[in-house]
């Protein structure tokens, strides 16, 4: 078939880019509101900030239909297994945003009850700082994730058996291996 037989224009590109573009433009978050940050997450989805502009307004109630888990709030020792179970139920590809300092590092609650960083339980892609992060901060985290999806691998399983080697800039991705829970000493 020669090109002159075509009656309309066409674009060429790589299939990978197409997949990445599609994934980036419709990241559906799971509703995983825990504490204060959940209110700001809801505010981000509501009229003033309107996450629908980025194809993200559908907060999926079922983890099976969600691509992104926004861990919004402090994760207690009691909640951590539940969080892990919800994460395990999500389909690949999936991403995690740790929203707020409590989820990222335990924040001001450095005590027996709070898991000091949700990255002990699930692998985190983007950390959003703030207590609570304003909707703008959350949106910045989401853009960062979009960029990560746009430039990332299409076929890679999260938390695979072989940890990726250190890249040239000395940045070693941390692959969480075990859930560390229980009574602190």
């Amino acid at each position: 078939m020669a090109l002159e037989d075509l009656h309309h224009n066409f674009l060429t590109g790589r299939l990978e880019d197409m997949v990445r573009w599609a994934r980036r433009a419709s990241v559906w978050p799971a509703t995983f509101g825990l504490a204060c940050c959940a209110i700001e997450m809801m505010a981000a989805g509501a009229a003033d900030y309107d996450l629908a502009r980025y194809g993200m307004e559908v907060f999926r109630n079922s983890p099976r239909q969600a691509d992104l888990m926004i861990v919004a709030g402090r994760v207690s020792q009691k909640m951590a297994p539940v969080l892990r179970q919800v994460y395990d139920q999500m389909m690949e590809p999936k991403w995690v945003i740790s929203m707020g300092v409590c989820a990222s590092s335990g924040g001001m609650f450095n005590n027996y009850a709070i898991v000091q960083g949700v990255d002990q339980v699930v692998p985190v892609d983007v950390y959003a700082p703030g207590c609570p992060p304003s909707p703008e901060t959350l949106m910045h985290a989401i853009f960062t994730l979009h960029e990560k999806i746009r430039t990332g691998e299409v076929l890679q399983r999260r938390g695979g058996a072989t940890p990726p080697a250190a890249s040239s800039d000395g940045w070693t991705p941390v692959v969480p291996v075990a859930v560390r829970l229980g009574t602190p000493t």
Partner: peptide, 8 residues
């Protein structure tokens, strides 16, 4: 599930 130990 959100016990934060705030009293402690």
């Amino acid at each position: 599930y959100l016990h934060t130990g705030m009293e402690k």
